[in-house]
């Protein structure tokens, strides 16, 4: 058991992780490209046209995976931040720093594609729906994290200050989500609800899962490339 854990800890050092990250990033980038091609093919050519929403619904193949990743990446970021704070490992803080821009990008993509989808379907670019609002606040949390790290010159302090903020944020996300949802029902009633959407065809679901996997691989690849840059910069 001890040798196993040693093997894992071996890669906790930036120097030894650097070449591994390069190999992993290349593999994940290839996987992301292949999966994205398959996913987009399913999305554009295999999945049937939606009876109610027409062709406009096809943006969900980008939108839904992006929204999933945006939330997932924040949790991953907070996880690495917490590890870094607890064990004082340099690499964990670098991972958190490297994850933030990708997470913010996916949050923005989710909001943007949501607006593009909302215009033809709901007739409006934006509604103060609970999910939209909490996604917007999630974007603010990402931007706050990045702004805090950018404002601190000393990398170790930046890592640890960002870690505290990420952990506070991850505790707050459920509170924010439920308060916004509650506020929403209090204010405007359920005028538009994603929950009442018709259950989707199996091919649509398959397309979404494949695209989510593609985005996941893309996130790993980009994060690892960014970690390599950070390692080069700092070490």
């Amino acid at each position: 058991m001890s040798t196993d854990s040693l093997k894992w800890l071996w890669y906790a050092s930036p120097q030894t992780f650097y070449p591994l990250a390069g190999i992993l990033a290349r593999g994940c980038a290839v996987a992301a490209a292949v999966l994205a091609v398959i996913g987009l093919y399913i999305g554009f050519f295999v999945a049937p046209t939606d009876a109610q929403q027409g062709e406009a619904y096809r943006i969900i193949f980008i939108h839904v995976p992006a929204a999933w990743m945006s939330m997932f990446l924040y949790v991953v970021m907070a996880f690495w931040a917490a590890i870094g704070l607890a064990f004082n490992t340099r690499l964990s803080g670098m991972m958190a720093t490297a994850l933030a821009p990708t997470g913010a990008l996916f949050t923005f993509v989710a909001l943007w594609t949501g607006a593009l989808w909302g215009k033809p379907t709901w007739g409006t670019w934006w509604v103060w729906d609970a999910r939209l609002t909490s996604e917007l606040i999630l974007l603010f949390l990402y931007l706050g994290f990045m702004a805090l790290q950018a404002a601190i010159d000393e990398p170790r302090r930046a890592d640890r200050a960002g870690a505290v903020l990420a952990i506070v944020g991850v505790i707050n996300i459920p509170i924010i989500y439920y308060s916004v949802e509650w506020w929403n029902t209090l204010h405007q009633g359920a005028s538009v609800s994603l929950k009442s959407a018709p259950s989707m065809a199996a091919t649509m679901f398959a397309g979404m899962i494949v695209m989510a996997a593609a985005f996941w691989m893309y996130s790993i690849a980009v994060t690892l490339v960014r970690v390599r840059c950070i390692i080069l910069e700092r070490e």
């Binding site: 404002a151 601190i152 903020l165 924010i176």
Partner: peptide, 25 residues
């Protein structure tokens, strides 16, 4: 967190205001 940083005031609002949302609501 923002103690002694450049542009502390604006940064502080960026960090704190999203966390204030539940209290406001």
């Amino acid at each position: 967190l923002t103690l002694g940083l450049r542009g502390g005031g604006v940064l502080l609002s960026l960090l704190v205001l999203p966390l204030y949302v539940p209290v406001l609501i």
